[in-house]
Design a protein around this nucleic acid. Structure first.
Lengths: 149, 149
DNA sequence: GCTCATTGTTACCTATACTCACAATGAACT
DNA sequence: AGTTCATTGTGAGTATAGGTAACAATGAGC
């Protein structure tokens, strides 16, 4: 074959990049000193992308984790005052998660930290390469099969 | 600005992809049923890329983790019979990690699992896009500042 | 000799996410 | 009505990953 195991090599690179991204994000979050963990940061970002306050189950689906994991994350964020658990009057089983004003401020600070991390990770790339990477990542993420399938 | 916070958006995508890659790899490794965790798999792959048997410290540097983390991973792999701790006669402080025959067989099986995971992750991309992604990842990984700096 | 750096490890802690079991609630059906 | 089943979130426990701090053994420089 002309390209021996191209996909396998890509997997290698992806796994390595995965580790690096995780490390760098963790360090930047720690330096930001907001008392927010990487997973909590992810939940906050996801929260901001919903129109109204989502249910726990909605967050679990969007984050591609099991609902139980969301409970823990919300516990931490609620303790920090970044989010609020609001019971849904229409269905007493569901709890909706609302961003507080504190949470919005935190989100803003996180935004800066995330951009700093991005600059560090993407340092070796030119502007054009970043555009190309962004397009590829769009395709990768949006084109992926839904979590439930 | 024409592209408002392109790097921040890229960070979002990267973090999301990171999570997905981690999930998919974990599932494929579990299905392969080799008794190997994702981090152990990463160590085995790294091991195969060294010329001779590396020291624990070499592995820690290459894996971008603290030496203590390598100890745990090698413990697990040694229990599975995939690697062997070999004392270095030239320096009685160092321990070199050797791949056993069992380990080589495991590595081969892992290779298949990794390729299956890659196919799943990369499904939305065409061949050309995969080539482009591979090139970008090369630049990203090789061009990154060394861990020690 | 003495001092200091290197090497791996023991002990402990945190973060993430998983399974399983369960209580509360709602929905569907008899 | 009631009975059964699905949904929703959570308590309890586990596994994985990685981190810090202290330490014993060893080597290197003086």
């Amino acid at each position: 074959m002309t390209t021996p195991d191209r996909d396998g090599a890509l997997a290698d690179q992806l796994l390595r990049l995965t580790h690096r991204v995780h490390r760098i994000q963790k360090r930047h979050l720690h330096q930001a000193d907001l008392g927010i963990t990487p997973a909590q940061s992810r939940l906050l970002r996801t929260l901001a992308h919903f129109g109204g306050p989502p249910r726990m189950a909605d967050l679990a689906e969007r984050l591609e984790v099991v609902p139980r994991a969301v409970t823990t994350l919300v516990d931490g964020l609620e303790a920090s005052g970044a989010v609020r658990r609001v019971p849904d009057p229409a269905n007493r089983r569901v709890i909706r998660i609302e961003l507080t004003d504190t949470g919005r401020a935190t989100l803003h600070a996180l935004h800066d930290a995330r951009r700093a991390a991005a600059r560090e990770i993407l340092a070796p790339l030119t502007d054009e390469q970043r555009e190309a990477l962004g397009a590829l990542l769009d395709t990768l993420i949006d084109g992926a099969p839904l979590p439930g399938c």
